[in-house]
């Protein structure tokens, strides 16, 4: 069982690094939802179904909704890179 937990935690950390490294903002939002997805399964394995349900509802549903809506509002939804070329080159990667 511990290997599934290890796989999930590894996924979580890799997705968290991907959030900071990926250039496209929508891809970063998808990676954020992956972090909370893995986290909710970890919470279930840690015998905390209440917390897992909150994390699933908030992290997978509401947070993605809010982030996607504000990306739309900000006009940062471009498929390729960022809106401003000079930021796309150096500003996005943290």
């Amino acid at each position: 069982m511990i290997w599934l937990l290890g796989l999930l935690i590894g996924m979580m950390l890799a997705a968290a690094i991907a959030v900071l490294v990926l250039e496209n903002h929508i891809a970063a939002v998808a990676a954020t939802s992956i972090v909370s997805l893995a986290l909710s399964v970890v919470f279930v394995l840690l015998r905390a179904p209440d917390v897992a349900m909150t994390e699933a509802a908030v992290g997978a549903g509401l947070s993605s909704l809010i982030l996607a809506l504000s990306l739309r509002r900000l006009g940062l939804w471009q498929i390729e890179g960022d809106k401003h070329p000079e930021i796309a080159k150096e500003g996005v990667d943290a």
Partner: peptide
């Protein structure tokens, strides 16, 4: 498991 907060989030999603 569940309760007001989780259900409230689902209701908000339903209306959205």
């Amino acid at each position: 498991p569940g309760g007001g907060f989780q259900g409230g989030v689902i209701l908000a999603a339903a209306f959205f």
